[in-house]
């Protein structure tokens, strides 16, 4: 179990699949990445590319039909021990969840039980981790609510439906850091809220992170948010990480045709709408994926080799790894755009 000093979570060669009637769906294949102390990692990609599955896999809450076929998820505890999350017992796993690694789900619309008050969910969470001092918990929770700019008393006693979408998202965010986890996974944290709320959420997230120093994995298909929040960005396509690198590198010098496609699909204020390009075709079938590079049927840079041979993930610049035979052409193509 080799792991560098500052690495808090090391995902090594993880594959996850679902059993469907037609066969095995390879939702995540052989994904590896390291998350460092205080780092913010953004996972970007189209829906269905395996981002959410990967995250559920990390806290082992896959649906019944899903299973982790191989790999390791190494986690460094606060006292410096390294454990394989996949080797934890059910009990240990329960402890691990939320206390070590919290997960804030998409939009929070359905993430809170509609018939239970916020405070009861707070106490539930604390009690599940052996914290029974209600006065203390309440104090801390109110403080966190204040930090995420909520009216603490009102929200604490409210039912979920009495709160707006943005408020619910912040409740969940505050709840997520209640137990002071080292890792917070955010699954589309700003998807279903308006642009102003989005800003607020991003701001409080940044403040919380600055104050508490947790690491973040977040999933988004909103590249501007990724650009703003992330230190590192990983592009996922068809269950694989096809490109990973520092945010500046990846956005300004993309070397994978898919990353480039994602960037070109984002509207920019500086230019007219007519230059928007969407990626032709649709994501591949994960039960019988295409041979070679899985992106090749949609790729404008495709060559004969791409159709035959899967490209390996190769470090082409410091910290910037890419799985593309034609990365040089992609890089060259991407430059005039900026």
């Amino acid at each position: 179990m080799s792991i560098s000093d500052s690495t808090i979570l090391s995902v090594q060669d993880v594959s996850i699949s679902y059993l469907a009637h037609r066969g095995k769906v390879r939702a995540v294949s052989r994904v590896s990445f390291d998350l460092h102390q205080g780092e913010s990692l953004a996972l970007i990609g189209e829906s269905g590319c395996g981002k959410s599955t990967l995250n559920l896999g990390i806290i082992r809450l896959l649906p019944k039909t899903g299973r982790i076929d191989q790999g390791k998820i190494l986690y460094t505890t606060r006292d410096g021990r390294v454990v394989d999350v996949l080797g934890l017992s059910e009990r240990e796993m329960r402890e691990f969840r939320w206390a070590e690694c919290a997960m804030v789900f998409q939009a929070a619309l359905n993430s809170l039980n509609p018939v239970i008050r916020v405070r009861d969910m707070v106490y539930d969470t604390a009690q599940a981790h052996g914290r029974h001092d209600r006065v203390q918990i309440r104090k801390r929770m109110l403080e966190l609510f204040r930090r995420v700019r909520l009216d603490p008393e009102r929200v604490f006693n409210a039912y979920p439906h009495e709160l707006s979408g943005g408020m619910r998202q912040r409740v969940l965010l505050a709840l997520g850091v209640l137990l002071n986890p080292q890792v917070v996974i955010l699954d589309e944290p700003t998807t279903a809220v308006d642009i102003l709320t989005q800003r607020t959420i991003l701001e409080v997230l940044r403040e919380l992170r600055a104050a508490m120093g947790f690491s973040i994995i977040f999933i988004s298909h909103d590249l501007s948010i990724a650009a703003e929040m992330a230190d590192t960005v990983a592009t996922m396509y068809a269950g694989e990480i096809v490109e990973i690198g520092p945010v500046e590198e990846l956005f300004y010098r993309p070397r994978h045709a898919y990353t480039l496609g994602l960037l070109e699909a984002v509207p920019k204020l500086s230019v007219g709408a007519q230059e928007l390009v969407s990626i032709p075709g649709s994501p591949p079938d994960l039960i019988e994926p295409p041979p070679g590079c899985k992106f090749h049927p949609r790729c404008p840079f495709v060559t004969e080799r791409c159709r035959r041979e899967p490209p390996p993930l190769v470090e082409e610049a410091p910290g910037h790894r890419v799985a593309c035979f034609e990365s040089a052409r992609v890089l060259a193509h991407s430059q005039p755009v900026r």
């Binding site: 329960r94 969840r97 206390a99 969940l172």
Partner: peptide, 17 residues
């Protein structure tokens, strides 16, 4: 299948709860 059930599990709540 509701998300809040998954979230409750993610919060480390016991099966019974």
């Amino acid at each position: 299948g509701e998300e809040y059930v998954t979230v409750a599990q993610a919060r480390g709540l016991s099966q019974w709860r």
